[in-house]
Design a protein around this nucleic acid. Structure first.
Length: 261
DNA sequence: AAGAAGACCAACCGCGATATC
DNA sequence: GGATATCGCGGTTGGTCTTCT
């Protein structure tokens, strides 16, 4: 078992500096090897934490701001179908993260639940609850917003592998349906040059010019992981040990390209 | 204007799945 | 094939901002 460095692991809110470093390293190495990135970036964060930050906040193409009515409708519809499969739902909402949708649903359902309660308590008469809002009460242990969709039972236990084929079939049907998800995609399918343009302010690609990247102020990566280059294959070590800034820049481009795909 | 309540968001935790050795 | 490491997901918590009284 590898030793895990528990000490000095930072927690809590990310600073701009950390974001900046993370973006640079993800640009270099892609958004897969989070533990590795966490190590070489010198961020003193866990890989998990880095991933989360990237996925939920720094990832290019993320939309921010209020959900559009179409998105809201889609969330409702998909939730009624899939239940709390947030990541799955998020895949249908380009630019939205599972966390964002989860949070949205939480507040949304809380509101609905309160409205319902209010409507029901005086004279338990009408309820204008939407058909898909299958609100469960908080009493009884389960989360109040844990409604579970039609698929919940079938898919529980088969967390993410199972329904993918079916999911694709569903998608096809759905995409042919009223929503033009393509339209949404158009919004985020920016030209390649811009596709790494982050949502976070002030971190334009230029700003992330690797030469001025603040990570260079911290122990240089190759110093930091002098005994860690071990895990790199040849190609990575070449990338990681540039001799000129040009090379470093091309590494950045390489990383960017791999990010873009 | 100040305090309380509610809404929103970012981040952490635990667990299961998957990849790698 | 088993052990270990890593990743990804869903649930939850806590902090901050906004609105209400």
């Amino acid at each position: 078992m590898k030793m895990v460095q528990e000490e000095n692991i930072r927690k809590g809110p990310w600073t701009e500096q950390e974001d900046f470093n993370l973006v640079c390293f993800v640009g270099l190495f892609g958004d897969r090897r989070w533990d590795f990135i966490a190590k070489v970036s010198g961020l003193n964060r866990t890989g998990k934490s880095c991933r989360l930050r990237w996925v939920n906040y720094l990832h290019p193409g993320l939309k921010r701001g209020k959900m559009t009515p179409q998105e809201e409708r889609l969330v409702l519809e998909l939730h009624s179908k899939w239940g709390n499969r947030w990541s799955r739902i998020a895949r249908k909402l380009p630019g939205r993260t599972d966390n964002e949708i989860k949070n949205y649903w939480r507040t949304h359902m809380r509101k609905k639940a309160q409205e319902k309660k209010r409507a029901a308590s005086p004279s338990s008469s009408s309820s204008n609850c939407s058909s898909s809002s299958n609100i469960t009460s908080t009493e009884g242990g389960a989360s109040f917003y844990d409604t579970g969709g039609l698929e919940i039972k079938a898919s529980s236990g088969a967390k993410k592998t199972g329904g993918d084929h079916q999911e694709q079939e569903d998608d096809k049907k759905r995409d042919q349906k009223e929503y033009s998800l393509d339209d949404i995609w158009k919004d985020i399918n920016l030209p390649e040059v811009n596709s790494i343009e982050p949502v976070y302010n002030g971190y334009s690609e230029e700003a992330c010019n690797i030469i001025s990247c603040p990570l260079m102020a911290s122990p240089a990566p190759w110093e930091y992981c002098s005994d860690s280059l071990w895990e790199m294959d040849e190609e990575e070590s070449k990338m990681f040990l540039p001799t000129t800034s040009d090379q470093f820049l091309s590494c950045f481009e390489y990383g960017k390209a791999s990010l873009i795909g």
